[in-house]
Computed example of a mutant assay.
Amino acid sequence: MEHVHETMPMHDHGGHGGHGDDCDSPCADMGHSHAMVFHANVCQEILFSGWLTTTALQLFGSCVAIFVGGVLYEALKYYREVLHIRATTVTADSRVNIAKNECGSTGNCNGPTVVKYSIWSCGHAVQTALHVVQATASYVLMLVFMTYNVYLCLALVAGLGLGYFIFGWRKTSLNDANEHCQ
């Protein structure tokens, strides 16, 4: 019995091997197959075809950018929580006004006063915009990790770790309802 092995053709991006007209690139013979295992290749396409590393210095610069992105992602999560706490914390002056409106003219009511956003409030609009930014950043960082490049993955995890170290100790809860990729 004879076995025939067929190989899948590499994706040809416009007849240029996927790297534009840069045929002298050290990555020119690499093709554009995306590894589904962890690897340590210097030649790495990151997120889109314009972000291609061909040298160790370019890969290092990309790692630094991704590290900073991880720190900023954790900062954004913390900032959203701070904004929410500020918007829903009742000050002494506002407690008197809320108590008069909700508990009668005496201002006596039992239990905590809860202040919520209204759907048309400025605070809710800001939180919505920040939620969109956070969701987008979360998925972009997930796609970076899915390159399976060990250096990029380590840079991302280190950035998220440092970001949590800097901002996480201030959090009021360990339950992170704002996390998108869990």
Results as ranks from 00 to 15, higher is better:
D93W: 02
H3G: 04
T172P: 00
H180Y: 13
T7I: 10
M146V: 14
V90E: 07
K171I: 06
L47Y: 04
H3A: 12
V126T: 07
G61E: 10
C103H: 05
K116C: 08
W51H: 03
L47N: 07
V4H: 10
S62C: 08
L72W: 01
F60P: 01
F167S: 04
D24C: 10
N149A: 03
V144F: 00
V126W: 00
F38P: 05
N108W: 15
H5E: 07
H34G: 12
D29Y: 02
V64D: 03
T172W: 03
A137W: 05
T91N: 04
V133D: 03
F145R: 01
G159D: 01
E81D: 01
K171E: 11
D24Q: 15
A158I: 02
S105K: 14
T55V: 06
P112D: 13
F165V: 06
L57E: 13
C181S: 13
L154S: 13
G104L: 11
D12I: 09
C181R: 15
D24N: 15
D93P: 01
K77C: 08
V150G: 01
G61H: 06
K77A: 08
H19Q: 11
I98E: 00
C122D: 06
A129N: 02
M30S: 11
L52A: 09
Q127P: 02
